[in-house]
Amino acid sequence: MNILYFLVGCSVVMALIFLGAFIWSLKSGQHDDVVTPAMRMLFDEEEVES
């Protein structure tokens, strides 16, 4: 059962990574505007000007 120590450690480290990712996404402003990106992605690709 000692393997549990390792597994618990792994799970905590992974959870911390996810928390870090969340904090990063929040700080970098990814949640500031959740409406415009949804509309922006519907625009067509730019036509290549000849």
């Binding site: 618990v8 799970s11 905590v12 959870a15 996810f18 928390l19 969340f22 904090i23 929040l26 949640h31």
Partner: peptide, 21 residues
């Protein structure tokens, strides 16, 4: 507003882990 969301995030993270253990 952002700092509140951050707090919710941290609290949710801790709650999830505590539940698990």
């Amino acid at each position: 507003h952002k700092s509140l969301i951050l707090k919710i995030g941290v609290a949710g993270f801790c709650m999830g882990n505590v539940m698990l253990f």
